[in-house]
Structures are given as structure tokens and as C-alpha cells.
């Protein structure tokens, strides 16, 4: 098995699916010769040609609408939005066209939208978004958010093969900072299945994306310093949610911390909390805790951004409060 970075894993998954299925094609801004703002598609244009690696005009609504149209008639477009923030310029296409077509017309729309997301890179209010919750509320869209290279490759492949629109949230901070073993051969990670990234007995942390790594570090620290055993559940797939995995974990540990980088109010954590409150209330030994960004736009200045974002220390503090309960 090769050790690759998170972004290399995405690249490999895309490459393999394009080799495998000639109906897969890429479209987006600066993805051809330039290889994309983050270089995920470097070399694709030379290998696959300009009919399958399409540099588009600068117009997100046209990109997402065109992806929807091509998918409607059986192609498998993978659209890259340069920064997830700019998906708003094509919001209407996703929530009203892509998301509802199968329900209304009974026609599958097998498209993928790649969304480089997340803060902690001094990007300020418009290059830092975690926009998943907007789409979480819209029936008809599947949402995935890998945290490791293994999941990144497995999920991009599943997303491309899925007959539905899949939004693929890739965290920019993980791109080159996270490495991991990734099989060379063809494998997929099933959409809708979470993953226990660390087993534990005392507290469950339900998380996804970049926050998984902070939760893992916090769990290590609690094990070492407090002798508390923390389970880290990586959702991987936000829609559909792996409800069974969440409920099983909480039934085992009796305590739940939900942690995500997106801001708290109206975030995906709220749905997880509601799920547990509804179906595992009697198993809870402590109130559910949530951690996320504070409810403001993402500030630019480093002191403000640090205060804004969740981090390992904030997770440790929340875990200690739960452990002491």
C-alpha cells in the first residue's frame, strides 16, 4: 500500500474512475492546464483530453446547472467549485434542480460536486466556509466529508458511481497535512456508513472532516492523562447519516460529545443530538455536549479565528466536563 496525502488520494480516486468509465468528466474553473487551485487535477488534461477535463467560464450557476443537465442524460460529471464558499453562486441549481429531479421525474442525476471547504487557513469570511448544513436541509442531495486519505479515495469513487447528486466536502487543511495508507486497487467506501476511528468505552465523540483529527488527539490525551476511554466516530457520510452506528456507540458509552468545524446553530450536530435524544435517551448518563465554531462569520485576524474555531483543547475541556459528570 502506498502512503499518500489526502489530496493525492482524491486525485487517485478521480483518475481511476475516469479510466474506468468514459462517461465521467470533470468541469470547473482553472482545472485543466493549471490543475485546479489546489492541484487536485494536475496532469488530467494531458491524459484525458479537453473533452473530459473542461475549463469552464467563471460562472458557478452555469457549472452546476450544466453538470445537472449532463447527468440528466446519463453522463457523470464531477464539478469542482474552486472554494466551497463559491457554491452559493450556483445554489439554486443544486437545491432546486439537482436535488429534486429524481423525486419529480424519476430520472437519476449522477453528479458529484467537489467542495474544498473549511477554515483555519487565514482565509477570512469568504474562503473558509463549511457549507454542508445548507445542503443537509435539502432532501435529494447526498453529502460526504472524508477525514483520511483512505476514505477520501473510497468516497470519491462511491460518489461518482452513485446515481444521485453527491456533494463531496474536502477539507483544505487536510490536503497536504494528512497522510495515510491507501490501497492501489479498486475499493470504495460506502456512502451512508460511518467509521469508528478509535474505540472507547466512556464517551463517544461524533465528528467528521478535519475535526476528526482534533478529536483523536484529544482522545489520546484523555486516555493518557485522565484514564478516560474515548470513542471517536467519524460520520464520513453526512447524508445519509449512519444512525445505527451513532446509536450503538452512545448506547455503549452513555455520553456524547458532538464536534464539528461548522458553526453550532443549525449545524449537523443538532440533528445528531436530536437523533440520540429521541432514540437513546435512556442510555444517556450526561447531557449531550456540542462543540463547533461560534455563530459568527469566519473572522480573518488570527486571534479571532482561533477563538472562533473548535480545536483540540476545546474538545479536551468538553470531554473532561463529560467525564466528570
Amino acid at each position: 500500500m502506498a502512503v499518500v496525502t489526502y489530496i493525492e488520494a482524491i486525485t487517485k480516486g478521480l483518475w481511476e474512475e475516469m479510466e474506468r468509465d468514459s462517461s465521467v468528466f470533470l468541469l470547473g474553473e482553472d482545472i485543466g492546464e493549471y490543475g485546479g487551485a489546489f492541484k487536485a487535477t494536475k496532469g488530467f488534461l494531458n491524459h484525458f483530453g479537453s473533452d473530459r477535463v473542461i475549463d469552464t467560464v467563471l460562472a458557478e450557476s452555469a457549472i452546476l446547472g450544466a453538470a445537472t443537465g449532463a447527468a440528466l442524460v446519463g453522463m457523470k460529471p464531477v464539478a469542482e467549485i474552486q472554494f466551497a464558499d463559491f457554491v452559493t453562486s450556483g445554489f439554486n441549481q443544486l437545491v432546486n434542480n439537482s436535488a429534486t429531479m429524481h423525486y419529480r421525474w424519476n430520472i437519476p442525476v449522477p453528479m458529484v460536486v467537489r467542495l474544498p471547504s473549511g477554515a483555519g487557513i487565514h482565509g477570512g469570511p469568504f474562503h473558509s466556509r463549511n457549507p454542508e448544513a445548507w445542503f443537509f436541509h435539502q432532501p435529494g442531495l447526498k453529502l460526504v466529508a472524508p477525514s483520511t486519505p483512505y476514505d477520501a479515495k473510497g468516497l470519491i469513487k462511491s460518489a461518482i458511481r452513485d446515481p444521485n447528486p453527491v456533494l463531496y466536502f474536502e477539507h483544505k487543511r487536510l490536503y497536504r497535512h494528512i497522510k495515510g495508507e491507501v490501497p492501489e486497487d479498486d475499493y470504495t467506501v460506502e456512502i451512508g456508513k460511518g467509521d469508528i476511528k478509535r474505540e472507547g468505552n466512556d464517551i463517544s465523540v461524533v465528528t467528521y472532516g478535519a475535526t476528526v483529527h482534533q478529536a483523536l488527539e484529544a482522545a489520546e490525551l484523555l486516555e493518557k492523562e485522565d484514564g478516560v476511554s474515548v470513542e471517536v466516530l467519524d460520520l464520513r457520510s453526512l447524508m445519509p447519516l449512519d444512525k445505527d452506528l451513532i446509536l450503538d456507540s452512545v448506547r455503549k458509552t452513555g455520553k456524547l460529545l458532538i464536534a464539528h468545524e461548522d458553526n453550532i446553530t443549525g449545524g449537523i450536530g443538532g440533528e445528531v443530538a436530536a437523533l440520540v435524544a429521541e432514540f437513546a435517551f435512556e442510555n444517556l448518563d450526561a447531557p449531550i455536549k456540542r462543540i463547533g465554531a461560534i455563530d459568527t462569520p469566519t473572522p480573518y485576524s488570527p486571534t479571532l479565528e482561533e477563538f472562533f474555531l473548535p480545536n483540540k483543547n476545546k474538545i479536551v475541556a468538553a470531554l473532561r466536563a463529560l467525564a466528570a459528570f
Binding site: I294, T296, P297, P302, T303, L304, E305, F307, F308
Partner: peptide
């Protein structure tokens, strides 16, 4: 200086 960290919460 940079702003005080807690300032982040103010002004929405």
C-alpha cells in the same frame, strides 16, 4: 495589536 480573541463573538 491583533484584536482580543473574545472580540470574535461581538457584532453579528
Amino acid at each position: 495589536p491583533y484584536p482580543a480573541a473574545e472580540e470574535a463573538a461581538v457584532g453579528v
